[in-house]
């Protein structure tokens, strides 16, 4: 059996590390866009982080935004072109740390955009430092003995935004095995449907692997994601669909 490359992905190899979740999430995002037939209407925003080169892989219009600002950039696009599909692809540092304010206010305005939020519990690009979503006890290059309460608690983005009236769809998924990957793809489709149907802000959080940042093997990384679910339970937090 041969895998067909989705039209929304360019047929080029990516730069991600072995065992990284980005390649998987790119693919299911591309499949979801293809299946909804919206590729030619998509304008995506790549983050500052490992996925900054998203535009080398995604076969639709893409821009790059300053660190943390994709929701504001997406707002600017959506407000002037309300019939386009605007997607931001952001990591945990980008979305939950430096971009916390833009996340909160775009969600609260019910900005009709979709955020794909990749939570791999660390800053992958800069060398595996602590992220706002790093669970307590996890070792990173800035919490070498493990994250302690003094460093702050892991930030639960879905729990934080779900009660905001502007939020139309909010789900946490994981991408460590085929069953969960299929669920994740369905979540992306739901989030995009929420945007297409103008039901407000939508966000999908992916618990994803970063073997390089975590200093573990790709196989061990799968186990780490499974453990992350104890802190970040998966499921649909809100749906106006």
């Amino acid at each position: 059996m041969k895998f067909k490359i989705p039209e929304s992905l360019k047929p080029v190899p990516n730069h991600y590390c072995p065992g990284c979740g980005h390649g998987i999430i790119h693919r299911i995002m591309a499949e979801a866009i293809d299946e909804l037939g919206i590729r030619e209407k998509v304008i995506a925003i790549a983050p500052v982080g490992c996925a900054v080169f998203g535009y080398f892989y995604w076969n639709f219009d893409t821009a790059e935004a300053a660190h943390g600002r994709p929701p504001a950039v997406a707002t600017g696009i959506k407000r002037v072109l309300p019939d386009r599909i605007v997607i931001t692809y952001q990591g945990d540092g980008d979305l939950a740390a430096i971009g916390g304010n833009e996340l909160l206010h775009s969600a609260n305005r019910g900005e009709n955009i979709t955020i794909l939020f990749v939570n791999n519990a660390c800053y992958g690009m800069t060398g595996g430092q602590m992220a706002p979503t790093t669970p307590l006890g996890y070792r990173t290059t800035t919490t070498v003995n493990g994250r302690v309460i003094d460093d702050g608690y892991p930030l639960k983005v879905c729990e934080l935004i779900k009660d905001l009236e502007g939020v139309g769809y909010c789900e946490r998924v994981s991408v460590e095995d085929p069953r969960n990957i299929m669920k994740a793809k369905k979540a992306i489709k739901n989030a995009l449907k929420c945007q297409i149907e103008k039901k407000g802000f939508s966000l999908v959080e992916f618990l994803s692997m970063c073997p390089t940042g975590w200093r573990v093997s790709p196989v061990e990384a799968i186990e780490v994601v499974k453990r992350m679910k104890e802190v970040f339970p998966i499921g649909v937090f809100k749906s106006k669909l």
Binding site: I43, I45, R69, A72, A74, T75, R79
Partner: peptide
Amino acid sequence: RVFLQAESELAAINMVFGAALTGK
């Protein structure tokens, strides 16, 4: 036309960035 009161100047200039991307 489009008017939006942003949550900060940081957000405002990045909304400008977004709208400018589209050629508006």
